[in-house]
C-alpha cells in the first residue's frame, strides 16, 4: 500500500497496553481529515492531460496515480485547492461539499 489508511484504534484499557514511552507504529492513522474540507477537488478526466502537476504539489499527498488516471483520497484531502489552482488545463474543479 502506498498510502496508510485509517485504522480502527482501541485505546488500551490497561497500562501494560500502552506503548513503552512515546513511540508508536509508523504511519498509524486513527483519524481522517475529511471533515476539514469545505470544497472538494473533482477531476475532469476528459481535460486532464495527466501531467502530474497536481500530484507533485499536493501538500497532503492525497492525489495519486490510479491506473493512468488522477485520483484523490478524500479521506485525507483537506480541500486546500492547490491542485486546482496549479492545474494547467483547469481540469480540477473545487466543488462545495454538501453537508
Amino acid at each position: 500500500m502506498s498510502r496508510p489508511v485509517k485504522q480502527n484504534f482501541i485505546r488500551p484499557s490497561h497500562i501494560e497496553g500502552f506503548p513503552v514511552g512515546p513511540q508508536f507504529t509508523a504511519g498509524h492513522l486513527a483519524d481522517t481529515n475529511a471533515g476539514w474540507r469545505t470544497f472538494r477537488p473533482v477531476v475532469n478526466h476528459d481535460t486532464c492531460i495527466y501531467c502530474l502537476r497536481c500530484y507533485l504539489v499536493c501538500p497532503d499527498g492525497t492525489i495519486f496515480k490510479d491506473n493512468g488516471k488522477i485520483a484523490v483520497d478524500y479521506d485525507y484531502c483537506k480541500g486546500c485547492g492547490v491542485c486546482a489552482h496549479e492545474c494547467p488545463k483547469n481540469a480540477i474543479e473545487m466543488v462545495k461539499e454538501q453537508l
Partner: peptide, 16 residues
C-alpha cells in the same frame, strides 16, 4: 518503523 517522541493529549499524558 516507529514514530518516536510524539505528543500526547490530556487524555493520555498522565498515563505516560
Amino acid at each position: 518503523p516507529k514514530n518516536m517522541g510524539f505528543s500526547s493529549q490530556p487524555n493520555d499524558n498522565t498515563e505516560f
